[in-house]
Amino acid sequence: MSSEDTEPLDYRFSLANERTFLAWIRTALGLLAGGVAVQSLAEHFSTWGFRRAIAVVCAGLAVVIAAVAYRQWRRAEAAMHRGDTLPTSVLVPVLATGVGAVALAAGTAVLVS
């Protein structure tokens, strides 16, 4: 049996890893819903470009977060099975930067409208 085939010492670590993955997926779904809502409901923005840009950034972030969350889940599972330290994640800075950009664009759109 190779080190890849061993189970983590405590199954709760795998369950916590799965909950973290699901939290990132919920965040991605929330961003996607926000992008659809902005595109569909924010008709009062006087500039069409702001609305479209906000919607596209939200949808793009949703795709990136969903993909990277799966990769991160797999990396963490593999590390736990090997008994290694957990890998770091790029999701937090990506999400913070993306949400900051969306907030800046939305604030600008509100001021310009």
Rank of each mutant, 00 (worst) to 15 (best):
P93S: 04
A79L: 04
P93M: 09
L86G: 07
V57I: 14
V94A: 14
A105K: 03
T85L: 14
R75N: 10
A103C: 13
P87A: 02
V63M: 10
R52W: 06
G100Q: 05
R74V: 12
E43P: 04
A53C: 01
G98T: 01
A69G: 05
T88P: 13
G35M: 07
A53N: 13
V92L: 15
V90S: 15
W73E: 03
V36H: 07
R51D: 00
V36Y: 10
A78S: 12
L86R: 05
V56G: 00
E77P: 08
I65A: 02
A37Y: 11
A67W: 06
H44K: 09
H81Q: 12
A66P: 03
A62K: 01
Q39A: 12
L91E: 06
E43V: 11
Q39P: 07
A62Y: 08
S89W: 09
R82K: 11
E43C: 06
V36N: 10
L61N: 01
A66K: 03
A69E: 08
A37V: 10
P87Y: 05
L86M: 09
H44A: 11
I54A: 06
L41I: 08
L91M: 09
V38D: 04
V56L: 13
F45E: 00
L61K: 02
A53Y: 00
L104P: 05
G49S: 14
M80Q: 10
A76I: 07
A105V: 02
V38A: 13
S46W: 08
T85G: 15
T85N: 15
T88N: 12
W48I: 11
A66F: 08
V36L: 14
F45S: 00
V99A: 06
A79K: 06
V63F: 10
G100E: 07
A53R: 04
L86F: 08
G60P: 01
T85F: 13
G98V: 06
S89I: 06
G83S: 03
E77K: 12
C58W: 00
V92N: 12
S89R: 09
A67C: 09
G60C: 03
P87N: 05
A105D: 00
T47Q: 15
L41P: 01
A59T: 07
T85C: 09
V64L: 12
V36K: 08
A69F: 02
G98A: 02
S89V: 05
D84L: 07
F50N: 08
G34C: 11
G83W: 09
S40P: 06
A79C: 08
V68D: 11
G34D: 07
M80W: 08
Q72M: 00
R74Q: 10
A96V: 10
T47M: 13
V63Y: 05
C58I: 05
E77L: 13
W73N: 11
S89Q: 04
A55Q: 02
A96K: 14
V57Q: 07
H44L: 11
T88A: 14
V102K: 01
A103R: 02
M80P: 04
V56A: 09
A103L: 13
V92H: 14
F45H: 04
E43H: 11
